[in-house]
Nucleic acid binder design. Structure first.
Length: 217
DNA sequence: CGCCTTTGACCTGCGC
DNA sequence: GCGCAGGTCAAAGGCG
C-alpha cells in the first residue's frame, strides 16, 4: 500500500560496527554513492583481512532519483568463516549488529525446514552469507535499491513498536534476503539489513545502465 | 492470470 | 523440558 518508490529526503548514516548495537556507536556520514561502495566489498572467502573501503563504485542509487541529503548508517557483519565451523554460535555472536535492542542472537542463515532434519547428518553446512545493514532516515519502508523483492514474512519485534519485514530477492537462483524494520523510538529511521550477494545485476526496469560488477548486493 | 502481500502456523535456538 | 523470540512457510486473498 505504501508507495515504495521515490525517496523524498532520506538521510543515511554510515558507520562500521563490530559488536555493538547501532545506536551505541558514533555515526559517520557519507554521501549516498559512497555508501553504496560498502555494498561492494565482496570480502569473499578469505578470512583475516579486515574490511577496507573499496573504491566508490558509482551510481547505485538507493532511493529512486532525488536523494540529495542522504546519510546512512552501515554496520558490517563480517561473518567470514568458510563453512567449517561446526559450532554455530561461536561465530555468530561476534561481529555484526543484529538487533538494535538488546540481544543479538538471530540466525537467519538457515535453510528450509525440510532440508535440515534429514540430510546426511555428516555435513552440516551452515555457511553464512555476508551481512550488511544500514540505517536510513526515510518515509518509505523499503528503499528502492534496484532489485526486486518479495515479502515473505513479518514479525513483531520485542521492545519495538514496529514490525520487521522479511524480503527475498525475486530472481531465480538468487537467495539474497533483506529485513526492514523501523526504530522503535524514532519511527523515521529505517534499518535495512541485507544478507547474501546477488548473482545477477539489478533488474530495475529497462534501465540499461545498470551494468556494473555489482557482485555483492 | 500471475505475481504479490498478508498472516497464522511452524520451526529452531536459547535461556531458565 | 518449556516457553519465548526470531525466522520461514504456505495458504489464501488482493491487485495489476
Amino acid at each position: 500500500m505504501e508507495g515504495e518508490r521515490g525517496v523524498s529526503n532520506c538521510e543515511i548514516q554510515v558507520s562500521f560496527s563490530t559488536t555493538q548495537a547501532i545506536h551505541e556507536m558514533g555515526f559517520v556520514q557519507y554521501e549516498e554513492n559512497q555508501m553504496m561502495s560498502f555494498m561492494a566489498p565482496a570480502q569473499s572467502s578469505h578470512h583475516h583481512h579486515h574490511h577496507q573501503t573499496s573504491q566508490p563504485l558509482n551510481n547505485a542509487t538507493i532511493g529512486n532519483s532525488s536523494t540529495t541529503n542522504s546519510t546512512t548508517t552501515v554496520a558490517f557483519g563480517l561473518n567470514n568463516q568458510v563453512g567449517r565451523t561446526l559450532d554455530p554460535k561461536a561465530v555468530e555472536g561476534e561481529n555484526y549488529s543484529s538487533n538494535i535492542n538488546d540481544r543479538n542472537n538471530n540466525s537467519w542463515w538457515r535453510r528450509s525446514a525440510s532440508e535440515k532434519g534429514k540430510v546426511n547428518n555428516k555435513v552440516r553446512r551452515k555457511l553464512r552469507e555476508p551481512r550488511f545493514c544500514f540505517q536510513t532516515r526515510s518515509d518509505v519502508d523499503v528503499l528502492d535499491d534496484g532489485y526486486k523483492w518479495r515479502k515473505y514474512g513479518q514479525k513483531v519485534v520485542k521492545n519495538s513498536l514496529h514490525p520487521r519485514s522479511y524480503y527475498r530477492c525475486t530472481q531465480n537462483n538468487c537467495r539474497v534476503k533483506k529485513r526492514v524494520e523501523r526504530l522503535s523510538e524514532d519511527c523515521r529511521m529505517v534499518i535495512t539489513t541485507y544478507e547474501g550477494r546477488h548473482n545477477h545485476s539489478p533488474s530495475h526496469d529497462s534501465n540499461s545502465s545498470d551494468h556494473q560488477p555489482f557482485s555483492s548486493f
